[in-house]
Design a protein around this nucleic acid. Structure first.
Lengths: 109, 109
DNA sequence: CCGATGCATCAATATCTGTTGATGCAAGCC
DNA sequence: GGCTTGCATCAACAGATATTGATGCATCGG
């Protein structure tokens, strides 16, 4: 009743899926200290350029990062609103788990 | 600096992965109103029994739910600690996104 | 205009994931 | 002891996902 739990399940699943990969989590971690171009990410991680491009595309599709072109470089950065949405959803899930403890219910006779 | 961001990336990825499926999100939603046996979940969702068993196994492997045998029924329930861990991780990600805005940094010349 | 750089995209492959139907197994009812 | 119920597990398949190397396409420097 307090918070909307998974108002849009498909959206929630997409959001969680985008963060269900270690490579992408590492990208997010690197972006947490600010905007980065792909070349720098490639350097920081031991990853092929096409691999990073793939994961960045996934993160972008989920709305977690945005890109900005500057000259020959493309800069990626986190989208705070999306991460806030994530935090809210996770918070709602936690709240529902706490509720579950108070409202016990019999099942199957 | 405030919160540890992905101290254990593999664990974080596993947690997010467990919630990256609509069927599993629906299970969590049903469990949020209390303990449920598989038979009841099967009834509430339009899902084959073996399908639910598969997803429950995934959720259990991630530590998000626990099971309890009672007679011929197996009751599943949410694990508040795991959902709190999730909420904390999501909160840390959000915090890092906010930090990213203040600490801009040049890249690639 | 030419070569180099930064990045996206494609093709091919390998692996993982989810679904279904069948089988197995334990617990309770008769 | 047989039968039924509730659930896990398996086998087989289909589809999604991740990795790699190659190619394409802009942008910039000369």
């Amino acid at each position: 009743m307090t918070t909307t739990l998974a108002a849009d399940p498909a959206r929630t699943a997409r959001l969680f899926h985008a963060l269900s990969d270690e490579t992408r989590l590492e990208i997010v971690r690197l972006l947490s200290s600010g905007e980065r171009c792909v070349c720098e990410l490639t350097g920081a991680m031991a990853a092929a350029q096409s691999r990073l491009s793939f994961h960045l595309k996934t993160l972008k599709a989920a709305g977690l990062v945005s890109d900005r072109r500057a000259g020959r470089w493309v800069f990626y950065s986190l989208v705070p609103a999306a991460l806030e949405e994530l935090a809210e959803t996770a918070g709602a899930l936690k709240a529902s788990a706490d509720e579950a403890w108070s409202s016990r219910k019999g099942c199957c006779g």
